[in-house]
Design a protein around this nucleic acid. Structure first.
Lengths: 138, 138
DNA sequence: CTCTGTCTTTACGTTTACGTAAACGTAAGG
DNA sequence: CCTTACGTTTACGTAAACGTAAAGACAGAG
């Protein structure tokens, strides 16, 4: 179960169901991500062959999903990681996208922190309330 | 534009379109939230009358949406804020819900922070790249 | 060769979170 | 009284993100 870079010289590959199991997705979902342009596995015959690069992309996809991004939003986001071979106008665009995304993430950071404060206060209240009734066991 | 507690003794109220404009939603959306049990305005004739309590709930709803929660998830979340009049079994349940939510929020916090690190690094790379080409203006 | 397992494509179904249109009630203004 | 503005309900429409058959390709085991 590789989580980082590949170890051997022979490029390690995965089938669709291996990826599916590793990320707790269905093959259907992974094909859907391909339809939406998030993944572009090469083919061997008609079968899809995934590499560690797809593995890394899927990790980013899952993170994006946990953050509530849409699939289209995640696609734009993935493009930011592929900035190496871009021309200047494209780079300007990517820069603007990255900065927009940073702005919303900073808002989201504040939201998460405030919600955590709220919930922990509520947790304290409830624990306290249950304690006063001697009902804090189990 | 009240943002905190009401000032006068006479309970300040709002129409549906006032709320809609304040939160940049449509009346349709606000009625939908009512259908889903997130809001329960009182009626005057057949018209809905909203108070500062609904205002506060809407603020929580919007925050939940920015965090990518589903409407059902936000409903459960709102219930946590109404913990005052609960019985012991219900309290146990709410406590468990709160703790679950805290767990996922802490994951989300890590995700946001990591993504911000990534994006700021990308931003740096792009800025650098544009600078080397003397293409950093405008 | 047949069976089994895993892959493939095609395509219709489903849920969520609203949008949109139709048709009507009601109070205020001219 | 008529219009305008804002509210109401009912109900069908829609985009996103998959789920779920259906039907076939293909490799290896027996």
């Amino acid at each position: 179960m590789p989580d980082g870079a590949p170890v051997s010289a022979v490029e390690e590959t995965y089938t669709i169901s291996q990826l599916a199991e590793a990320f707790e997705l269905t093959p259907r979902t992974i094909r859907y991500y391909e339809d939406e342009g998030l993944l572009t596995p090469r083919r061997e015959g008609q079968q899809r062959v995934y590499t560690h690069r797809d593995w890394a992309r899927l990790k980013l996809i899952m993170r994006g999903k946990r953050l509530g991004f849409t699939i289209a939003g995640i696609k734009d986001f993935l493009d930011l990681y592929e900035v190496g071979d871009a021309q200047v106008p494209q780079m300007r665009f990517l820069l603007a996208s990255a900065r927009d995304r940073i702005t919303t993430l900073e808002q989201q950071l504040r939201d998460v922190q405030q919600t955590l404060v709220d919930l922990k206060e509520i947790e304290g209240l409830v624990v306290d309330h249950l304690a006063r009734r001697g009902a804090l066991d189990a």
